[in-house]
Design a protein around this nucleic acid. Structure first.
Length: 888
RNA sequence: GGGCGCAUAGCUCAGUCGGUUCAGAGCACCUGCCUUACAAGCAGGGGGUCGACAGUUCGAAUCUGCCUGCGCCCACCA
């Protein structure tokens, strides 16, 4: 790039350097004697595509990993994908349906063949997209939760917990997803307030022979389509209104089946009518009442959510259609008393959004109590830190109220449960069919392989991803805590930081902690940084269905990956939601351009070896050297507290304000007769050194432009990259010098402001006189940046002009005839008035004995200094005022 | 219904130990500039009763209580 264009053009730069990094295997890590720094990626769905949430998450991960790499650690970021059983299976089913193939017409093996083909073809697109973002993952280590060895780890884990007695099979009320045709865990059910109706229905008392009498009771229900499955009517034993019902039987409307009236404390007397219809097969609480009272369980809704023949009526109708129809029928039969509008929480499947049907079925469960207790301790003791801290409360609450984890799913895509049924119903759990047969023969020696039938279900996806931080390094380990960890696992585990969304804190993070405790006896990560959710400008969650999410690849193409990365991070403090707006990315792009142009300026400098090191430049160099160290300290402090956006903002301001606006302007050679002056060697070398440090500071968040410019600065050795250039270290610096430079900045601003208000063009040279403790070493800088000379004066009472103050230093610009004296007088009078008010308040404070007695000495001392400063300001302002009035 | 958290400039947020002229930053906005790196820029400027009320204190954005509004998590009163 001989000729640098006036604007930064990211596209080719990014592709070029990413390919080069890959080529040189810079992302790859092997165990070494260096300190490791490890991150495992939160594995995205293998079928997923990159969305803004991924951008946020993976940019943060990349910033941390690149920073660690430059800090000299052996950084390893393991990428991979998750098989996402329900999501993927439903995508495959949908695709087959398009091709006219129904899942039911296929065998398990045929279906899985399609699924794998589909995965090979479309899976992992997201990993390719991450490269566009600049993610420095160790791609050689890419894993998939259904890789053969990782699947084996899952199976071994199941066998391990089963043999330990923590996994059991039980008939339970589960959350049935009639669309996904599988049970889902409690955590995968989203409760949403849903408008429905409260139907009040008459149940007539039976005469004992199945005939209705004229007496009746009224129940209230939201689900009239389930009345055919009623097993009883239940009232509270303390409810006197219903004591006449004791021992009575009632008839279910429409089908006239006789059911008893029972009593149970569960029923709330003041809710509804105080009479509850008990439907054990289709409601969790009813099921429990049924157990207590030995009620029969009659299931009338099938897998697909349709009424079956046991319902007697409306057979084959979908539950919601049936609801509408049965209301009409009940009305016709005179059983409908009234209908109320009613809003109640209804469970929906997180994956398919189908209304969950509570359903009785045999499922596999993992006992959670002991695991949760340990996992709670891991966080409470601080072995794993949650950032921000507020999530600790939420975490504790969940861990203390956890229920057993339903780990079976009625799907094909996933790890099949390694349980085999013997003909007599006994179960053996072994890692594979051969072992199972061996175990079965111990029970019954005559058994053959074909006598065993493997469980049809697969395991919940989280049952594989909870092993992720272990199994990506050593798949042999889960389920075999007695095995010595391999070299990778012993080196990289525990990982350092995990960046993920709070929505999967329990699904995933908590369970990884459990698995880590169980199989490694060590937490899987030290810090969990929880990001917010990316929302649009008006606060809506970004989603495909709303169409309010930009395609990150489009953004990258338009603005560049660096711009997208910093734009995203500048406004994202930990745990807070991000309100995304394209203007943030624009800001990122503008910053790239600023960096680019500052480099163009530096590159345009021509060095004159004989040129003297000018005073202004010398001061600027000394100052920026100090300032750089100061900001490095700040930035490191922010990073250590995971205040990433603060760290970036500090770098942003260092680059833009301190380096470009002050430093470069101070050292920039001028023009003599239209010809650029040359720069001296010392200043030039210092500038390059500073620029090099700045690029290194910015590299973790803006990897591409930093590499591009760093490589362009000088001839680099083959394979030398900014990726491994060390993070700049803070040196010793003099804060007083920085403070003095700040006074110079304020002075310059004062002069510029004066020019602005008095319409004095920048080119007109000014003589500025000052009175007070102005740090005189800064005079050359002020002169250079404000086109003025500074002179110390004893007195400037007798001149006409305009003035300003910086702290307690007075400045005055003689401007005979150029100023409006009245205006100046008014301005000074206003200042004086403010000073008097301020002085009063300070004196009032000092006069308060309570204050001087109780406040720390330093605070009181400070008030006294304020008083003195104010007095001196008042004195000089008054003097100026008098002078102006006298000269009038 | 239970628990947790938040409320500071038009927007997104800092504000660490209660004390500096403490009311801040970035963006947005307004004014003037196409000045030899950058108009994706430069220079300057306006803008807030720190959600309300009460209290503790010499002193409160900061601590306490209560109220209002919002968010999140948990919980199937059918």
């Amino acid at each position: 790039m001989e000729q640098l264009s006036a604007k930064y053009n990211p596209t080719e730069v990014e592709d070029k350097w990413y390919a080069w990094w890959l080529d040189h295997k810079f992302f790859h890590s092997e165990p070494s004697d260096k300190e490791p720094y490890t991150i495992v990626i939160p594995p995205p769905n293998v079928t997923g595509i990159l969305h803004m949430g991924h951008v946020l998450n993976n940019t943060l991960n990349d910033v941390l990993i690149r920073k660690a790499r430059m800090d000299g650690k052996n950084a390893c970021w393991v990428p991979g994908t998750d098989h996402a059983s329900i999501a993927t299976e439903s995508k495959v089913v949908a695709k087959l349906k398009e091709a006219g193939i129904s899942k039911e017409s296929l065998t398990r093996e045929e279906f899985l063949k399609y699924a794998w083909e589909w995965k090979e073809e479309h899976g992992g697109i997201i990993l390719k997209q991450l490269r566009k973002l600049g993610a420095s993952c160790d791609w050689d280590r890419t894993k998939f939760t259904m890789d053969p060895d990782l699947s084996e780890a899952v199976i071994n884990t199941f066998v391990y917990f089963y043999k330990k007695g923590l996994i059991y099979k039980g008939v339970r009320m589960v959350n049935w997803d009639p669309e996904g045709l599988t049970a889902v865990s409690d955590e995968e059910v989203v409760h949403k307030d849903t408008k429905s109706h409260f139907y009040h229905l008459k149940y007539y008392i039976s005469d004992g022979n199945g005939n209705p009498t004229d007496k009746f009771l009224v129940i209230a229900t939201t689900r009239p389509e389930t009345i055919m499955a009623d097993a009883a009517i239940c009232v509270n034993p303390a409810d006197e209104r219903h004591h006449w019902l004791r021992g009575k039987k009632v008839l279910i409307p429409l089908i006239n089946r006789e059911i008893p009236v029972i009593e149970d404390d569960y029923v709330e007397m003041d809710f509804g009518t105080g009479c509850l219809k008990v439907t054990p097969a289709h409601d969790v609480h009813d099921y429990e009442i049924g157990l207590r009272h030995n009620l029969p369980v009659l299931e009338i809704i099938d897998d697909h959510g349709k009424l079956n023949e046991k319902a007697q009526i409306l057979v084959g109708e979908d539950r919601f259609v049936a609801r509408k129809k049965i209301v009409k029928m009940l009305e016709g039969a005179g059983n409908l008393v009234k209908v109320e509008e009613y809003t109640s929480p209804v469970g929906y499947s997180e994956r398919t959004n189908a209304v969950i049907e509570p359903r009785l079925s045999a499922q596999w469960f993992l006992k959670m109590d002991a695991l949760a207790e340990k996992a709670l301790e891991t966080v409470e003791s601080g072995k794993t830190r949650l950032i921000p801290d507020k999530y600790r409360n939420t975490y504790r609450h969940w861990m203390e109220n956890v229920r057993d984890w339903c780990i079976s799913r009625q799907l094909w895509w996933g790890q099949r449960i390694p349980a085999w049924y013997l003909p007599d119903g006994k179960i053996v759990v072994e890692p594979n069919a051969e072992e199972a047969l061996k175990a079965a023969r111990k029970i019954n020696p005559s058994l053959k392989a074909e006598d065993l039938r493997q469980d049809e279900d697969v395991l919940d996806t989280w049952f594989s991803s909870w092993l992720w931080p272990i199994s990506v390094f050593d798949p042999e380990r889960p389920g075999h805590p007695e095995h010595a960890p391999n070299a990778d696992l012993s080196y990289y585990y525990p990982t350092n930081d995990l960046v993920t969304g709070p929505d999967i804190l329990f699904f995933w993070v908590a369970r990884m902690i459990m698995a880590g405790n169980e199989f490694m006896e060590k937490e899987p990560f030290h810090n969990v940084y929880l990001t917010g959710i990316v929302r649009d400008k008006i606060g809506r969650k970004m989603s495909k269905t709303l169409g309010n999410s930009p395609d990150p690849l489009d953004l990258i193409a338009k603005y560049g990956a660096d711009a997208v990365r910093i734009g995203m991070l500048l406004c994202s403090s930990a745990g807070n939601d991000i309100f995304y707006d394209e203007s943030q990315v624009e800001q990122g792009r503008n910053f790239c351009n600023k960096i680019w142009n500052s480099y163009r300026l530096i590159k345009s400098f021509e060095v004159d070896e004989d040129a003297p090191h000018k005073e202004a430049a010398a001061v600027a160099v000394k100052w920026f050297d100090a300032r750089l160290s100061q900001v490095i300290e700040t930035v490191e402090d922010h990073y250590s507290k995971f205040r990433i956006s603060d760290a970036l903002m500090a770098i942003y301001k260092l680059f833009w304000d301190d380096f470009c606006s002050w430093y470069l302007e101070a050292i920039k050679p001028g023009f003599v007769n239209g010809v650029a002056e040359k720069i001296d060697r010392k200043t030039y070398d210092a500038t390059l050194r500073f620029f090099d440090s700045l690029l290194r500071m910015i590299h973790p968040v803006m990897p591409f432009i930093s590499e591009e410019l760093w490589q362009n600065m000088e001839e680099r050795a083959e394979g030398e990259t900014i990726m491994y250039a060390p993070t700049p270290k803070a040196g010793k610096y003099d804060p007083a010098f920085i403070e003095n430079f700040e006074i110079a900045e304020e002075t310059i601003n004062g002069i510029r402001g004066l020019r602005n208000s008095k319409n004095l063009p920048p080119k007109e040279f000014l003589t500025v006189r000052f009175k007070g403790d102005f740090p005189e070493e800064m005079i050359p800088v002020v002169a250079k940046l404000s086109n003025a000379s500074l002179e110390k004066a004893e007195d400037f009472k007798d001149e006409a002009g305009a003035g300003f103050m910086v702290r307690t230093i007075e400045f005055f610009v003689p401007l005979k005839g150029l100023v409006n004296v009245e205006e100046e007088i008014a301005k000074i009078e206003k200042d004086l008035e403010y000073q008097h008010r301020f002085l009063d308040s300070v004196r009032k404070k000092l006069a308060n004995e309570q204050f001087t007695a109780h406040a720390p000495a330093a605070v009181v001392e400070n008030e006294r200094k304020k008083e003195a400063d104010s007095l001196s300001k008042i004195e000089s302002l008054s003097a100026q005022l008098n002078a102006l009035k006298n000269n009038k």
